[in-house]
Amino acid sequence: RSRTAFTAQQLEALEKTFQKTHYPDVVMRERLAMCTNLPEARVQVWFKNRRAKFRK
């Protein structure tokens, strides 16, 4: 699988949600996936990586 390049709009939506909660539930992730045209699995991995970045 190749690396996913996120658009500015996708990142904005993801970051906005991350500010609200670092652990979105499956419903919220699926809604984000639909809004951003990304698979739910990519949204889940983005949050996992973003939490790791946040802890540093």
Rank of each mutant, 00 (worst) to 15 (best):
R1H: 14
R1K: 12
R1N: 15
R1V: 12
R1G: 08
R1F: 10
S2P: 04
S2C: 10
S2A: 11
S2D: 15
S2Y: 12
S2W: 03
S2M: 06
R3S: 14
R3I: 14
R3L: 14
T4Y: 06
T4F: 14
T4P: 13
T4V: 09
T4H: 08
T4C: 13
T4E: 15
A5I: 11
A5K: 13
A5N: 15
A5M: 13
A5V: 11
A5D: 15
A5L: 10
A5Q: 11
A5W: 12
F6K: 06
F6Q: 06
F6L: 13
F6A: 09
T7N: 06
T7A: 09
T7F: 08
T7W: 10
T7S: 12
T7K: 01
A8F: 05
A8S: 15
A8C: 03
A8T: 14
Q9C: 08
Q9D: 13
Q9F: 10
Q9G: 11
Q9H: 11
Q9W: 04
Q9N: 11
Q9T: 09
Q10Y: 03
Q10I: 02
Q10S: 01
Q10M: 05
Q10V: 03
Q10T: 01
L11C: 10
L11F: 06
L11Y: 05
L11T: 14
L11A: 09
L11H: 12
E12K: 04
E12M: 02
E12C: 02
E12T: 08
E12A: 06
E12Q: 10
E12L: 05
E12I: 02
A13G: 03
A13T: 12
A13M: 12
A13V: 15
A13E: 14
A13R: 07
A13S: 10
L14W: 04
L14K: 01
L14F: 06
L14T: 03
L14S: 03
L14H: 03
E15A: 00
E15W: 05
E15T: 00
E15S: 00
E15V: 02
E15L: 06
E15H: 04
K16V: 08
K16P: 00
K16G: 13
K16L: 08
K16S: 11
K16H: 09
T17N: 02
T17Q: 06
T17C: 11
T17H: 04
F18R: 01
F18N: 02
F18H: 07
F18S: 02
F18Y: 05
Q19V: 04
Q19T: 12
Q19F: 05
Q19I: 04
Q19G: 08
Q19M: 06
Q19R: 09
Q19K: 09
K20I: 14
K20G: 07
K20D: 05
K20A: 11
K20P: 00
K20H: 10
K20T: 09
K20V: 11
T21N: 06
T21C: 15
T21L: 07
T21V: 08
H22S: 05
H22T: 07
H22G: 02
H22V: 05
H22D: 02
Y23I: 00
Y23D: 06
Y23H: 07
Y23P: 00
Y23Q: 00
Y23R: 11
Y23W: 07
P24C: 03
P24N: 00
P24W: 07
P24Q: 00
P24E: 00
P24V: 03
P24R: 04
P24S: 03
P24M: 02
P24T: 01
P24I: 04
D25I: 05
D25G: 06
D25L: 03
D25Q: 00
V26W: 14
V26T: 11
V26N: 14
V26M: 13
V26Y: 09
V26Q: 14
V26F: 03
V26I: 13
V27M: 11
V27G: 14
V27I: 13
V27N: 04
V27H: 08
V27D: 10
V27T: 11
V27Y: 12
V27R: 07
M28R: 06
M28H: 05
M28P: 03
M28Y: 02
M28G: 01
M28F: 03
M28I: 06
M28N: 07
M28V: 11
R29V: 15
R29C: 13
R29M: 15
R29T: 12
R29F: 13
E30H: 05
E30Q: 07
E30F: 05
E30A: 10
E30S: 08
E30P: 07
E30M: 08
R31W: 09
R31P: 01
R31M: 07
R31D: 07
R31V: 04
R31S: 11
L32S: 03
L32E: 02
L32T: 00
L32N: 00
L32C: 01
L32R: 02
L32K: 07
A33Q: 05
A33V: 03
A33G: 14
A33S: 07
A33P: 00
M34W: 07
M34H: 07
M34E: 15
M34P: 03
M34R: 12
M34T: 13
C35T: 13
C35G: 07
C35N: 13
C35M: 14
C35I: 15
C35D: 15
T36Q: 10
T36E: 08
T36W: 14
T36L: 14
N37Y: 01
N37V: 01
N37D: 10
N37A: 07
N37S: 08
L38R: 02
L38Q: 04
L38C: 04
L38M: 09
L38N: 00
P39K: 10
P39D: 13
P39M: 00
P39A: 07
P39S: 13
P39C: 06
P39V: 02
E40W: 05
E40C: 05
E40R: 04
E40Q: 10
E40Y: 04
E40S: 04
E40M: 11
E40V: 09
E40A: 09
A41Y: 12
A41F: 09
A41E: 11
A41K: 12
A41W: 15
R42S: 15
R42I: 13
R42T: 15
R42M: 15
R42H: 14
R42Q: 15
V43K: 04
V43E: 05
V43Q: 00
V43G: 05
V43H: 06
V43L: 05
Q44R: 06
Q44K: 08
Q44L: 11
Q44G: 08
V45I: 05
V45G: 08
W46A: 07
W46E: 06
W46I: 00
W46F: 00
W46V: 01
W46G: 05
F47Y: 07
F47E: 00
F47S: 05
F47P: 00
F47M: 03
K48I: 11
K48S: 07
K48M: 09
K48L: 10
K48F: 08
N49K: 15
N49Q: 14
N49D: 15
N49Y: 09
N49A: 09
N49C: 05
N49E: 15
N49I: 06
N49F: 07
N49G: 04
R50L: 06
R50D: 01
R50Y: 02
R50M: 12
R50A: 11
R50K: 10
R51H: 01
R51T: 06
R51G: 00
R51E: 01
R51V: 03
R51L: 02
A52Q: 07
A52N: 00
A52H: 14
A52I: 15
A52W: 00
A52V: 05
A52L: 08
A52P: 06
A52T: 15
K53I: 10
K53E: 14
K53F: 06
K53P: 05
K53D: 14
F54Y: 12
F54D: 15
F54M: 12
F54I: 12
F54S: 09
